[in-house]
Structure formats: C-alpha cells, structure tokens
Design a protein around this nucleic acid. Structure first.
Lengths: 339, 339
DNA sequence: TGCGGGCGATGCAACGTTGTAAAATATTCG
DNA sequence: CGAATATTTTACAACGTTGCATCGCCCGCA
C-alpha cells in the first residue's frame, strides 16, 4: 500500500498536518523539521494522493477534450496542440471520442465523468447551431469550431470566411479563372463547409467572376475518399476548371489523386489548395498548398480561456475569439519545393 | 453547488446512506423508498461525485495512455483504437505525450498524476531494452511496442520479424530481386527497425538471396521527410533496386514521393510496401501496400491485460502477447485499386 | 515581572462517497 | 399474540487530503 501523510508523520515523528505543511510549503516550518520530514518522505517514497487532494480542493488538474475521432488527422493534430498547451499549465488531458455522433456528443456533456476534470474543450461535429442551448455542463466549456455560434460558452474559431477567401484569391492571383470546390455541404450556411464556401464566393465576387454551381462538388463526410469521389463526380459531369479549392486537406489530397490518375498535371493543368495545414501536406507529391488555421494559437487560446473560466465561472460574458491564419503556398499551386 | 447524497436524502426524507443504497442498487430497498429517492434525485439533478467515489474505492475508472505524439499518424490511430477499446469497458483515457523524450518517458511513470488513473498503457520510443528494469510505477503497466522485452510488465507487440519477412516475401513473390530498405536504424537489434530488418534478412536468406548493405538506407527518425531523405540517399549513391520495403508507412510515402519525382514508376519500375496500414495508405497515389499489424487487436488485448492486472496485480507472471498481422496488397505492389 | 506578538506545530473538521455493523421495522409461524 | 426471523433503514467510520482555529513557546519590550 502506498504511504500516506500519516505514515510519513509517524516516521518523521511529527503530526501529519506538519507533513502537509511541508508539502505545501507553508511559511512557518522550521528548517530542521522540514528536513526531517523530507527525509521521511524520501525514505517512504511518499507521493500525495491526488484523488484525495481533488476531493478536498474541488479541482482535479485535468481537462477533458471531446472530439470526433483521433484517426482523423486534423483532430489528431488538434489534440496534440491542446495536450501541449495544457501541459504548459500543468494540466493533463482526458480524451473523449464522440465519433461525430449526436447522442455521444450530448452524453459527453451530461456524463458525471466530466466532473473528473475541471473543464471541457469541445469540438462538436454532429451538434449544430440549433443546439446552441444544449451546450452546457457542470464544468466550464470552451467550444471549438464553426458549427455553433452564440452559445453561452466561450468559443475559439478560425477565420473560416476570410481564410477561405484568401485561399481562393491565392488561386485567382495565379491567373486561374475557373475554380472548382471540393467538399461543400448541401444547404449548409454555418459550419466549416458553409463558411468556407462563402469565403470562396466572396473572393469570386470581389473579382467579378460569376459563381457557377457546376464547379461545386458536394460531399457528406470530409474523408479522403470523399475528396476522391467528389473529383470523380466533377470530371464525370464534364466540368472544366483550372484550379481546385479543397475545403480541407484530406479532401484536397483525395482530389489530387484522382486528378493525377485522370492525367492532369498538378499544378500545371490544375492548381490545388487545401485547408488545415496538416503535417502530411508537406510530404505529398506535389506538396499541397493550404491554409494554416493557427492550430497552436487555437489550442493555447482555448486553454487560456478555460483556465480563466475555471477560476471565475461567471467573471464575464461568453467570449468569441478568432485566430490568425496564413495561406501556405506549396507546389500544388506552383510554389517551389520547400519540404 | 452540486447536489450531494445528503441533499437528496433531505429532500427524500431518508438517510443519506439509503440514497447511496438506491444508487448502487442494493438488494434491500423497498420499492416505495426507491421511487421516493429517485424522484428526489431527478428533482435535484443529482450526479454522484466520482472523485469522492474514487477516493473511497481506490479506483478511478480512467487509464493513462502514454505515447510519443499524436501528430504521428501511427500513434493517433493507436490512440483511437485504445480509446474505443477502453470505452467498451467503461474506462476513460488520459493521454500523455512524451515527445519520445527519455526524461519525459521516465517522468510519466514517476508522476503522482499517474495515480489519477488505474493503469498505464505505455508506448515508449526513447527508453530501450537496457531500461527494462525502469519500467515500473504505482499502477499496473502494459507495455506496447518492440523496444523493451522481458520487463516485469505485461507486453503486447506485433510480430515484427515474421510480418516484415512476409512483406519482403510479398515483394519476392512478385519476382523482384533487389529490394531496398528504407528506415533502418544504425546498429539496432531489437526495436521496430531492428526486428523488421531481421525479418527482411530472413526472407532474403530463405530464397538464397545475399544481403546487400548497399540497399539499406539508414535514418534517425521515422517521419515522412526521413523516408524522402533516405531515398535520395539511395539514389545518390547509385543503388539499383526494383523494390522498396519502407519500414513504416510514412517512410514508404516519403520514398514513393522521391521515386516519382525521380521519374520512376511505382509499381512498374519499383514496387513499394510499407508497414502499419495507416488509414491514409488507402488514398495515396498509388495506394500503398503495407502490413496491417492488427491495431484493434493490440488495443483490445492491452486493455484486457491491464484490466486483469488491475483486478489482480500479482495474479500471474508478466505476459508477452503477439498479435496477428496481415499483408495488405495495394497498387504500389501491383494489386488493382481497392480504395 | 508581566504581557503582546510572532513563530512553529498541532488537532479537528470537512470534501462526498461506500462498507460494516447495528438498529428499526415488517413478516412469518407456532 | 408473542417470539423468531427476514427485511429495510440507519449510524458510524474510513478513504487521504487541506483550511481553520488553537495552542504552546520564545522573544522583546514596558
């Protein structure tokens, strides 16, 4: 059995409370006492029981990160960033996978499990704007992503519209005129797909190019296979284009694959840009131009907001923060190799 | 403040222990009492405090998964599998990233944090065989991977040697004779690289083909860029080969990229096989042949062993389990598209 | 000499839960 | 109807920690 404060106290010949005082370095402990206690701690290999400390203090030192699935590269990289950001503040991260399932997304917020952590960073994929009122739990929440705005929780999001517009303008700046879109969601207005499509349209508009729905390929999911299928779809229906905006990197990769199979050269015949700046976009052939949505900043901002909210749950009204983005030009839009 | 057993008891007009009995559905609770209590629970929205329960029971319902980094796709998919396997048993997963740093790998096992979970699934990348004795903690450990054998902990590993041999034989069966290896580690004997290289050599030997060190490219890390660099290295030194065994998928992808840039057709000029069966290998051009190391089985076995060990810490001597693998033939070794 | 004040150490209670044992109540049977 | 027994409820302690209040001591100062 592990040693407790009492065991240490017995060995050191002091009261267990004094041991506690040493551990929490209270000011009024004599040096001789302190070293006696420290010796006993070392001798017994005492480690504080964090569960007991949690019960007493009401804080666990952990946060929950709820996301759809780690095998989706975007979320894996997001999780990486969140864990690193949390570690900087001494917090540990518990991960819940929702599988983009509405029921599980709601369960995460309702589960008593959640109270084993001090707060929740939540990236929903099934819940949408109409569920804004359901975003609540026994712990503070920071919401990530573009699916829900104006909930009562803090919210960190990337600048989808502006960034998508910049990505499209990057293609336009290359002289491309007919830009296909891969990965739109039928009828979506907010949500990553809807917002990025809006950015695309704004860019066209600003250059006086009419929007052509024939250049937009719709999908249900944002997996690699969907990007491939969408590109097949475009080619099958005889669409002609000299550039492609993949609404995320995996879609763009799927599209590139199909383009190459079909004999198109990227970027010569068709320039392609994605979105997310996944690590792997640096190593595809050609390397994939993309938009860096500021993942590290998203993670750090989310952690910071969550910690503030944990400290003062009602300190301020819900905040909504947009992070800085950057267009990253690589080979797929004609930039020279930079891998 | 959240409601406690006492609050519920007050509302229901019973003792708080009776409420506890209802929650843990003890046999001897009268139906009328039970419903009275349930009504009060619903009315107050009572949720049990899991921290207090943990303190009392000594179990947390969480496990820790320590791995190098989630942004490495292999570990992201491993984490996904572990979380799903854990969820099936009602366990939640806390993730620690070690960054393949020796110091942090040791810290994970020493940290009092670890005791906020019931056990550790540990996939080291810095610690090696010589550290077998350092694999110990206050909770049961299940070790993953190929770096450390014969420690005092349970261990789940893939069949590296046999699987690598099968992968090499797959290339030999295609009639390829000169098979390059991308990703060897200088001087390594055990560890994924060493074991897989051994499987490669065994395959050659069994067909009477001499081992040629000129066909082996060494790397330090297993990132995509290393695979690319290694292939550059092979080409630069004038190596000739008709097949490549990438010791993992990301290395193979990097190698494929360089091969294609250099004008080689894959698989016609050079057949390529990887290792790990990452999801993304299904969507590259060409799709990548690989070895499925049985990730789901690894995860489920690890969870099962850990739970057994948690239930009975000294129930049995350390076990070492190897999971089943499967060679997956895709386009990069001439199989027809199956994406 | 007496007293206030700072220091150092301690004791007690509490965080919210569950196990054990005992008490209270209901049921059965002679 | 009373005793024996079965059922239901309760009281108390404990898990290991920290906050609060207390207590004794030594010192300096009047």
């Amino acid at each position: 059995m592990a040693a407790t404060l009492h065991d240490v106290a017995r060995v050191a010949g002091v009261s267990f409370k004094t041991v506690s005082n040493v551990i929490n370095n209270h000011p009024h402990v004599r040096d001789t006492t302190r070293s006696k206690v420290e010796k006993a701690i070392a001798e017994l290999g005492y480690r504080p029981n964090l569960t007991a400390r949690s019960l007493r203090s009401g804080q666990t030192g952990a946060i929950t990160l709820a996301l759809p699935q780690l095998s989706l590269p975007y979320f894996a990289e997001l999780a990486d960033a969140v864990i690193e950001a949390a570690a900087k503040h001494g917090l540990v991260v518990l991960i819940e996978q929702t599988g983009a399932d509405r029921k599980r997304e709601l369960e995460v917020m309702a589960s008593p499990r959640l109270k084993m952590s001090d707060g929740l960073i939540f990236s929903p994929l099934a819940l949408g704007q109409e569920d804004a009122d359901l975003i609540k739990a026994d712990v503070p929440i920071v919401l990530l992503g573009e699916r829900i705005f104006g909930s009562s929780s803090d919210h960190v999001t990337m600048q989808n519209v502006t960034a998508a517009r910049a990505a499209t303008e990057h293609l336009l700046d290359l002289g491309r005129k007919r830009i296909a879109v891969v990965g739109a969601h039928e009828g979506e207005v907010i949500g990553s797909a809807g917002l990025r499509l809006r950015g695309y349209r704004e860019a066209l508009e600003s250059r006086g190019i009419p929007y052509d729905d024939g250049l937009v390929a719709y999908v249900v999911d944002w997996h690699r296979s969907n990007g491939a299928a969408a590109m097949h779809d475009l080619l099958d229906r005889g669409a002609t284009f000299d550039a492609v905006f993949g609404l995320n990197d995996t879609l763009a990769q799927g599209a590139v694959r199909v383009l190459q199979e079909a004999g198109f050269r990227v970027p010569d015949d068709v320039a392609v840009i994605g979105f997310d700046d996944l690590d792997e976009t640096r190593y595809t052939l050609p390397t994939l131009s993309t938009v860096d949505p500021g993942r590290t900043e998203i993670a750090e901002t989310a952690i910071r907001m969550l910690m503030e909210r944990i400290k003062e749950p009602n300190g301020m009204p819900p905040r909504e923060i947009e992070t800085a983005f950057q267009v990253v030009a690589r080979e797929s839009t004609g930039a020279s190799d930079q891998a």
